[in-house]
Design a protein around this nucleic acid. Structure first.
Lengths: 154, 154
DNA sequence: TATTGTTATACTCTATAACTATA
DNA sequence: TATAGTTATAGAGTATAACAATA
């Protein structure tokens, strides 16, 4: 099997721990961890189309739609016709969504604090940089055969 | 909101990229990324009980059972009565499971190579260390010494 | 009494394919 | 023709609670 497997497993363990702790912390507010990510994505860029939202999550358009239906039922987001493109719909946070999102950030603070508490400032910066490298290497971009490393995968 | 949010998002992005690429690579073999993790966990410690398997994944016993039912249907794993504890069942890879697992590792090699290709040896080591710190800080499971059952490994 | 596993149940996320409407 | 979104459908993982059998 030849290729180091420590990183994938360590990455999985760290993410799963984060995910589960987040689920538990947000559950009292009736929002899942993934829904939180969606809401936070909306906060960063207002009036996104569903497609753009899916691109940024990143996720699948039909997955995003399923999530939006749930969030709309809770009145946390609202979908409106796009002003220029009659095919598209824009998604925005409702006032209730904004308020809930603020609470969600607060509910997650202890988790982020726990992570930071385990790392020095230098480690923190390094980790973000390394994770970004990994994500980029595995990125949605077309897997160009030229990028693979000859000789490594025997 | 006070606390840095770069790490959680970077962690999520990296894991999701890994997960999706893995799903795509293993799909032709009819196994999901999570099922692969289960099979690989079995490979590392044979004749685990379902409970111990769930602890190591980590996952929920009822989740693991659902996965085992699927894997048993594919004849990749087999469950047998525990020799000492009549309540428990041991789970082992079938010969077909062993063979499939070998193919799964091969199918995933290019993904791991891609990760390694993006990192220097020092970065690779650093990343594993940092991820382990994060997982530990978030309640990552402590790996326990081998508790496989002597004499049961097929 | 505590633990192992099963069963029933429910929900979320995921994703493909066929479809409508619009660009 | 291509794109945005919907609908139908399916499957996989997740987890809780009630339960039986056993330690």
């Amino acid at each position: 099997m030849a290729v180091e497997r420590a990183i994938p497993m360590a990455l999985r363990a760290a993410y799963l721990a984060l995910h589960r702790r987040t689920e538990a912390a947000l559950a009292p507010l009736g929002v899942t961890a993934d829904q939180f990510v969606l809401l936070a994505t909306l906060e960063r860029g207002e009036a996104l189309t569903q497609r753009e939202l899916a691109r940024r999550m990143p996720s699948d358009p039909s997955t995003v739609r399923a999530m939006l239906v749930l969030l709309e039922r809770e009145e946390l987001v609202r979908r409106a016709p796009h002003p220029m493109d009659a095919r598209a719909r824009t998604v925005v946070l409702t006032p209730k969504g904004v308020k809930t999102l603020r609470r969600l950030w607060n509910a997650g603070d202890p988790i982020r604090a726990r992570i930071l508490g385990a790392l020095s400032p230098g480690e923190h910066e390094a980790l973000v940089k390394l994770l970004t490298k990994v994500a980029t290497a595995l990125g949605g971009d077309a897997p160009s055969p030229a990028d693979s490393i000859p000789g490594v995968e025997q």
